[in-house]
């Protein structure tokens, strides 16, 4: 196989898997709450910051020279903490807009995103500056001339596992059945003895925890993280979810890989393709919304008269 082509394919795989992790959160939250949680990107980007902080504390204070275990521990703490942040965000803000028009919730979560960014900037030491983020695994696999970073394969594997895990949770566990029941009809679910608020909290935890993994992968593939990366991260993940159809899990995954493919092709063929990535992503979003308003795999909107 052509060497350049394989590199592009690997790049595509990496981008698609990272995007899928954040797009899934958008889709899951929209499916259950019918609200666009616009600060999801910013919540997710808290993950790498927590991981970084925990790792620095661990390596300096408690367990020096134990790079691998510190990394794993930091990742776990970050994922759980971000999940809890998601629950907090729901409890403090999003919950209060359940009955308000969808637009109000949208504006509120945009404002919330700004608040989270500012908090990161103020609370993290030297938060205004970009922070270097370590590569998860720096080794490479050599196949003849082609060298494949293990971290790419690792991230892809984790994403596949996460998606599979989400699928199992949503379809095979009581919690998943409850989540889907609330998504389908909140009032009937309540009549069935399901506590919608608890389900919302659980959904926020899952979505934010998965987003945190995406955020950590994003940071480690970029090698650097800054407080305002959440905007772009959220926007691209969000467009992937829209292209696939908000509320549909496999739609979000396919949307992510479609978007990653467009990005990769643009970077490979155009001189300054990277600069135009958001343009292509959002033109595609407009096109999809106009041609198929509910996305490629979303539920069609029925209008009852």
């Amino acid at each position: 196989m052509d060497l350049l082509l394989s590199q592009h394919l690997l790049n595509w795989l990496l981008q698609g898997s990272i995007l899928a992790l954040v797009a899934l959160g958008f889709s899951l939250l929209f499916g259950v709450l019918n609200v666009i949680h616009f600060s999801h990107g910013d919540v997710s980007i808290v993950g790498p910051f927590v991981a970084l902080a925990v790792m620095q504390i661990l390596l300096v204070e408690i367990l020096p020279h134990t790079w691998a275990s510190a990394l794993i521990l930091a990742a776990i703490v970050a994922i759980v903490a971000t999940g809890c942040l998601g629950v907090l965000v729901d409890w403090l803000v999003v919950r209060r807009f359940r009955t308000a028009p969808a637009m109000m919730a949208l504006v509120a979560t945009v404002a919330l995103g700004a608040i989270i960014r500012e908090l990161i900037r103020m609370l993290y030491p030297q938060g205004s500056n970009p922070q270097p983020f370590p590569e998860l695994i720096s080794a490479q696999l050599e196949f003849g001339k082609l060298s494949v970073p293990i971290s790419t394969l690792f991230m892809f594997a984790v994403s596949v596992l996460m998606v599979a895990g989400l699928y199992v949770i949503m379809h095979r566990t009581p919690l998943g059945i409850r989540i889907r029941a609330v998504a389908q009809d909140r009032d009937i679910a309540r009549l069935m003895g399901i506590h919608p608020n608890r389900i919302f909290a659980a959904t926020f935890f899952i979505a934010s925890a998965v987003g945190a993994i995406g955020g950590i992968f994003y940071a480690s593939s970029a090698g650097v993280i800054r407080f305002d990366f959440g905007i772009q991260f959220g926007l691209i993940g969000f467009s992937a979810a829209v292209i696939g159809g908000l509320g549909s899990m496999h739609g979000a995954i396919i949307g992510s890989f479609v978007l990653a493919a467009i990005d990769t092709v643009a970077q490979a063929t155009l001189a300054d393709g990277a600069a135009y990535r958001l343009v292509f992503a959002f033109l595609l979003v407009i096109l999809v919304l106009v041609l198929r308003p509910s996305g490629l795999f979303g539920k069609p909107i029925l209008e009852k008269v």
Binding site: I36, A102, L106, V242, L278, F282, L289, P293
Partner: peptide, 18 residues
């Protein structure tokens, strides 16, 4: 003509970013 509510908001948002 084709979209409404949240989806229309998304179109305008995408337009603004483009």
């Amino acid at each position: 003509m084709r979209t409404r509510d949240t989806y229309l908001a998304l179109v305008t948002l995408a337009f603004g970013i483009v």
